[in-house]
Design a protein around this nucleic acid. Structure first.
Length: 891
RNA sequence: GGGCGAUUAGCUCAGAUGGUUAGAGUACUUGCUUGACAUGCAAGGGGUCACUGGUUCGAUCCCAGUAUCGCCCACCA
């Protein structure tokens, strides 16, 4: 066989996730492993998925978020909890409607032409298609959701919950209908809640408009960023404290163009320091002006149509778009000499979070939820520590919003969503009821003649109920009893207000307790350049593409490793190689072990303590330390740290050192039985610890290790999860191994720097300070012989340096490798001088410290002792290196 | 205007009641087809821990300020 063929045949031993993942997932599903049982006696651990919007297929952010949840779920399932992870999707009111209307537009249709019924059918079909795609994606990622309990925010059950909540709050007086200034999106033609508005900074202008004072030649100048709104002015206002304008209060000004008479009023809202100190009052298009108008009983003139064009109140500007209207108003003012000036002005304007158009403050009649009472228990829950944020600084953000909470505009002039459960009689009488009012409920009216409110509810009005509505509320279901409250809510920071905060309020109001105890806030996924991934920028990465190329396990562990706690991960396509390589490494080391295993079933769950050699005890000590660190990290929701700990343990301690140390020198020879047992035991523990992160490859290896048929009942999924009793922890042993590692590394460095072929073995001389180290090395030379390419080992306290040998000085020992004919004197000299410089620097630092009387007087004794020991060590090494250098010069 | 976070190797990030020779991955350089793995092994180079002060015997770590970047909140007409 040619070399080329060999290398291709070698490639085939690489782990192939595509051959493993789908089959295992189907198997888990078939066996119903993901289903949470309400009649279980085990303690419950539940999570509800943040329901993805049906508008989008999953992106990397979802992959990350759901991987995090799956890790928590799988770990607790292994720990013996009765686990429930409720999946589902959100109907995403505005977002979905905007997309479907765009599709209609392409076909030359509008939703009105189609009619409400047909529009709803069409949207519904589109949404459920997307929902299936999304749920399929979650399965590809490996999420162990309870698919029997999949929910959709528009499901019948959840819709009943929504209507129930509406009527409940209405009866309490916490839902009201009123004329208020709302954030109106002229493109979506619906109001938005304050939290759905995104503020952006724009380069705008400030126009100074002159208003004539009636019966005089005086003019008042008013500055505005939206000159077209002057068409809706119903007053001018000044500060009551402003002496400049005192005499004008009570007089009348003339609105330019429309020539309407405007009262000049005094209101404390006006800041005399700002602008000209005079404010135009446009009650229908500015929230402050609206308040002023209410105080002064002013008229409210709406100048806009719902689509953002000017209406009949705009006079000759009627029909113009708001911006065209602005331009023409400015031009006309200029012609009339009523525009004093205009200047550049940076302003922040609200935009629609769905369609990105600039929203208009707009007076209309809408439904609102009064929030102040709802917020109280939700504030207490966080200040009282019953709900914890991770990282905890998000609690501040949450509390700041809660403490300044404003009423929530919940009605939307859309068709896609939960219809408001309010019915009207012809005379305007209103009935609020979960279902169409019965004859009894609307006495005196024919129930059939009642007309339901045309509008729907904010999409968040259903998602804020999610933690209990998915479990069947308002019915008292076994699911609610067993699985409410949930444990953890995992999400990115963007929806803390829109969703998390509101869920807490709903949890207290309707269930009497918090919906979860911990809120895990992870970062927002950014691309390799730090730009937020988004559809519109096209910099997103499709998780399925990554799964196809690298596998779901690689996707998962790579995401977790790349996501620092609380910070935004920067992810490029090659970020996933880290995980792919790691998964393969795990697969390879398992192969190594399995190749050595005798035919009989291996012992995987215990070790024989009486049959342990040094390295066996060492890896067990390291394992227990790793288990402790991982469990601590989980307790603090530091998943990335847990993953990193495991990554390092597997790759460095287990593969690079332990396996290499127990690997027999001669090819094909068997590994010592006791060590093979330890290696297998540790592998089993590794598989368990890693299973939440990389469920597929670990389960696959587990089957192979036990050599079980695919249709057996074996699985890692139900644990046990590793714990440590510290029985094998041995610090002294770990120190000893570090000494061996230091010797091996020193030899490797010498050989590498002097360019010695790995094929060539060499002798090793180690001059030790403490005979114990000599014994340690002598006793274990057979284990590290091949790691350091050692032919014969010589040790001793007074060992003579062999001639023509390269040297290295480490703590407590000198290492000599005789390399007659291979040493380039200059290279060796360079090496030693460099090391000498390095040690000298440290020696200086330490000496300086110890020469400082203040240090000696104040530092704790153990710190002084440590410094002294360091100083001595450095000193000895400097002397030794110097000696070795002298010798070289003699060559 | 207010608040929050970040600033450590070319890049992405760890780090510690304040005393470690400041680490990892990646990229880079060199050597290696070694009977688990080239998706690998070994070795190497690379850092005034953003800046300025302060506290301290000692600061990359604590405090204050500055700068830069990012995010959130806010009725600056």
């Amino acid at each position: 066989m040619s070399k080329g063929n060999q290398s291709t045949s070698k490639k085939s031993v690489a782990y192939s996730p595509a051959d493993v993942e789908d089959g295992l997932y189907a198997r888990w599903l078939n066996r119903n492993y993901f289903h949470g049982r309400v009649d279980s006696t085990k303690e419950a651990y539940s999570i509800v998925i943040p329901p993805p919007n049906v508008t989008d297929v999953l992106h990397l952010g979802h992959a990350l978020n759901n991987t995090i949840q799956d890790i928590l779920i799988r770990k607790h399932r292994m720990q013996g909890y009765e686990v429930e992870w409720v999946p589902g999707a959100d109907h995403a009111g505005i977002a979905t409607q905007v997309i479907v209307e765009k599709q209609l537009k392409k076909e030359g249709l509008t939703r009105r032409e189609l009619g409400r019924e047909k529009f709803h059918q069409r949207t519904s079909a589109w949404a459920s298609r997307n929902k299936e795609i999304i749920l399929g994606q979650l399965k590809k990622v490996g999420c162990s959701c309870d698919w029997e309990r999949t929910r959709f925010t528009l499901d019948e059950g959840l819709s009943r919950a929504v209507a129930q909540v509406f009527t409940h709050l209405y009866k309490k007086g916490w839902i009201y209908r009123g004329n208020r200034i709302v954030n109106w999106c002229p493109s979506c033609q619906t109001p938005l809640s304050d939290d759905e508005v995104e503020h952006e900074t724009f380069d705008g202008r400030l126009w100074y408009i002159k208003y004539k004072v009636k019966g005089s030649d005086e003019y008042l100048t008013v500055a505005t960023t939206r000159p077209e709104t002057m068409l809706g002015d119903t007053a001018l206002a000044v500060s009551p404290k402003d002496s400049r304008y005192k005499k004008l209060v009570g007089k009348t000004a003339i609105l330019p163009i429309l020539e309407r008479e405007l009262p000049i009023i005094a209101d404390a809202f006006v800041d005399p320091e700002f602008g000209t100190g005079v404010v135009k009052v446009t009650p229908a298009h500015d929230p402050n002006d609206f308040e002023i108008a209410r105080r002064h009983d002013l008229a409210e003139i709406n100048i806009l149509n719902t689509d953002g064009t000017l209406n009949e109140n705009a006079g000759k500007f009627k029909g113009l778009d708001r911006y065209a209207g602005r331009k023409q108003v400015v031009e006309e003012l200029e012609r009339k000499g009523l525009l004093e000036k205009s200047e550049k002005y940076e302003l922040s304007v609200g935009t629609c979070y769905r369609c990105k158009n600039v929203v208009e403050p707009y007076l209309s009649e809408q439904w609102f939820v009064k929030m102040s009472e709802l917020a109280k228990p939700a504030i207490d829950a966080v200040t009282g520590g019953r709900i914890r944020f991770h990282p905890d600084y998000w609690a501040k953000t949450y509390l700041h919003w809660m403490e300044n909470i404003r009423d929530w505009c919940i009605s939307r002039q859309l068709w896609w969503g939960h219809r408001i459960p309010v019915w009207y009689a012809e005379d305007g009488t209103m009935f609020v009821s979960v279902d169409r009012p019965t004859a009894e409920q609307c006495r005196g009216y024919d129930p059939g003649s009642l007309v339901q409110d045309e509008n729907v509810l904010d999409t968040w009005f259903s998602s804020w109920l999610w933690p209990f509505s998915v479990m069947g509320w308002p019915d008292k279901t076994p699911e609610l009893t067993k699985f409410y409250p949930t444990r953890v809510l995992s999400t990115a920071s963007e929806i803390i207000f829109l969703w998390v905060a509101r869920m807490v309020m709903a949890g207290y109001e309707f269930m009497g307790q918090a919906p979860f105890s911990d809120v895990y806030i992870h970062g927002t996924v950014r691309d390799a350049n730090g730009i937020k991934m988004s559809k519109s920028l096209g910099n997103g990465i499709d998780p399925l593409e990554i799964i196809d190329k690298y596998g779901a396990d690689a996707l998962r562990i790579s995401l977790v490793l790349a996501t620092p706690d609380g910070q935004d991960p920067w992810i490029g396509r090659n970020s996933f190689e880290v995980g792919r390589n790691f998964v393969n490494k795990l697969h390879q080391v398992s192969r190594f072990i399995m190749m050595r295993l005798p035919g009989k079933p291996p012992v995987i769950d215990r070790v024989d303590d009486s049959d342990l050699l040094m390295f066996d005890r060492w890896i067990l000590s390291r394992l227990e330390r790793t288990i402790e660190t991982v469990n601590e990290a989980f307790a603090d929701f530091r998943l990335s740290a847990a993953a990193k700990t495991l990554y390092n343990f597997v790759w460095n301690d287990y593969c690079s050192w332990y396996i290499e140390l127990i690997k027999p020198d001669t090819p094909g020879a068997s590994v010592r039985e006791g060590s093979l047992n330890v290696a297998t035991y540790v592998l089993n523990q590794i598989l368990r610890l890693l299973h939440p992160f990389v469920p597929f490859v670990t389960e696959r290896i587990y089957f192979d290790l036990l050599n079980v048929a695919d249709d057996c009942d074996t699985t890692l999924m139900f644990g046990p999860w590793p714990t440590s009793d510290g029985r094998h922890r041995d610090e002294a042993l770990e120190r000893e191994l570090e000494q061996i590692q230091a010797v091996v590394s020193a030899v490797r460095t010498i050989r590498s720097e002097l360019d010695v072929s790995p094929a060539k073995k060499s002798d090793l001389y180690v001059r030790v300070k403490d005979p114990a180290l000599a014994r340690l090395l002598e006793d274990h030379i057979e284990y590290f012989r091949s790691l350091a390419r050692v032919e014969r080992l010589y040790t001793g306290v007074d060992l003579k340096k062999p001639s023509l040998s390269a040297s290295a000085v480490i703590s407590g020992a000198e290492v000599f490798v005789p390399l007659a004919g291979l040493i380039d004197v200059e290279v060796e000299k360079g090496r030693l001088e460099k090391e000498l410089d390095n040690i000298k620097t440290h020696l200086e630092k330490t000496s300086k410290k110890l020469a400082n009387a203040d240090f000696l007087a104040n530092a704790p004794p153990e710190v002084i002792e440590r410094e002294k020991a360091k100083k001595q060590d450095f000193q000895e090494r400097v002397e030794k290196i110097n000696k070795n250098l002298e010798q070289i010069l003699g060559w």
